[in-house]
Design a binder for these strands. Structure first.
Lengths: 227, 227
DNA sequence: TAACCTAAAATGGTATACAACTCTTCTCGT
DNA sequence: ACGAGAAGAGTTGTATACCATTTTAGGTTA
């Protein structure tokens, strides 16, 4: 692993941690001095972060951490609704018993944490959920599909996502996991894809609807309050 | 235009020409000396070629031109079948009259060239077809969708694709263009998406079936011979 | 007060020198 | 003869330096 690789990982991690907030600038000289590296590997890391969509370059001013609008989030969900079902559609005919077991254990673990329900448990669920999806992508065995998903499912979106879930939504998500496993075990790609589609759409609904809404979205606000 | 930009274009062109064959290495010092540049701009060009998927870097060993297997081609078509219909699904509710006119002109031009039928005309059709799809992506107005498609629809796949078409397949492709335009004009995203799906699947069939097949694919070979 | 000018600070692009790594090949010991 | 290990060549990785370009802030002047 080269120094540029490490710098890439470090900056990305700091963006995720919030250490580098949205719209803030990553200074080449600053981080270079901190890590005791020259500008060369820093610049290379920043180039890769730009092409991966984590930062944007304002010419002669610097590399700015990108900020996510509501529209960005919706765009990502729109693409996940297409791609993630394709993951399990492929996985259904390729997954082996070992991988199925692994998925089962992850689901089991998540359900236990789900019963606890405290904030820390929710965080752990998010991590396990990422591993669940990663395992599926591995089973799908399509490097390009994996690359595309990695390019759009950036953690800023999915990291805190489970905190938006109501209890009902959370349990529904767990049931989705179980049903996906059953569909995969049955080798039924279309079944698995349908559940996954529902899974993503549910995540989208949870992310888009509950948090503080603006005034002009009063109609949906009312609908939510009514239930 | 910087030196790195030129180097990028030159290397890409040479890969397309076959001057840099698949699995061969692009040496920084070699091309640097040839173009009378230092390694710095060459390295930057190579990085961009990596992120665009044209070459891959083996650390401390070099930049290798990627080789495409049959499986790679199928993976790309599998993803295009998902993503390109989504392009027109979105475009249907967003496209304006000017863009529709532009699409109509492109289709018209392609049809004229289609009547000529010689090799040069086929090449020109390929270029216009790319512009057709690019116009659709613009109308879809989704930067992420555009990025994903650009990441997978690389020219090695699409460049010579029309040469694999029979006359019937070529005319069918032209009819698809017309029908997509009609569907978009009607604002019917699902109609447009269905035609686009057929369009891509037809391209896949033309690309996968006709060229010389290997022995171990005898089953499909027989199927083809039978028709 | 407003317009302009200037200087500092940061990145952008490139060149060059050196360090580190990989792979190959050759040698040496068994 | 054969395998382990070392040396060497070749290649990439990083540091450093240089100048150009641009932005920003601050100060000056009308």
């Amino acid at each position: 692993m080269t120094a540029a690789d490490r710098v890439y990982a470090i900056i990305k991690q700091r963006i995720l941690d919030g250490q580098y907030p949205a719209d803030s600038y990553v200074r080449e000289a600053t981080i270079g001095h901190e890590l005791e590296l020259s500008r060369t590997p820093i610049r290379e890391a920043l180039r890769r972060l730009v092409s991966d969509g984590w930062v944007e370059v304002i010419p002669h001013h610097g590399a700015r951490v990108v900020s996510w609008t509501q529209r960005d989030v919706e765009e990502v969900f729109e693409l996940r609704v297409l791609l993630e079902p394709q993951v399990v559609r492929r996985a259904a005919s390729r997954i082996d018993a070992t991988q199925l077991d692994s998925l089962g254990e992850l689901a089991c673990h998540m359900e236990q944490l789900c019963e606890r329900g405290d904030d820390q448990a929710i965080d752990e669920i998010a991590g396990l959920n990422n591993r669940f999806h990663a395992e599926l992508i591995t089973a799908a065995d399509s490097p390009r599909l994996q690359r595309l998903l990695e390019a759009i499912v950036q953690v800023p979106v999915s990291r805190r996502s489970f905190h938006h879930y109501s209890d009902e939504e959370l349990h529904g998500s767990m049931r989705h996991h179980r049903e996906i496993i059953r569909a995969l075990a049955a080798g039924d790609g279309e079944w698995a894809a349908s559940v996954m589609r529902a899974h993503i759409l549910a995540a989208r609904a949870a992310q888009l609807h509950p948090p503080a809404r603006q005034a002009h979205e009063s109609q949906q606000q009312q609908r939510r309050s009514a239930r």
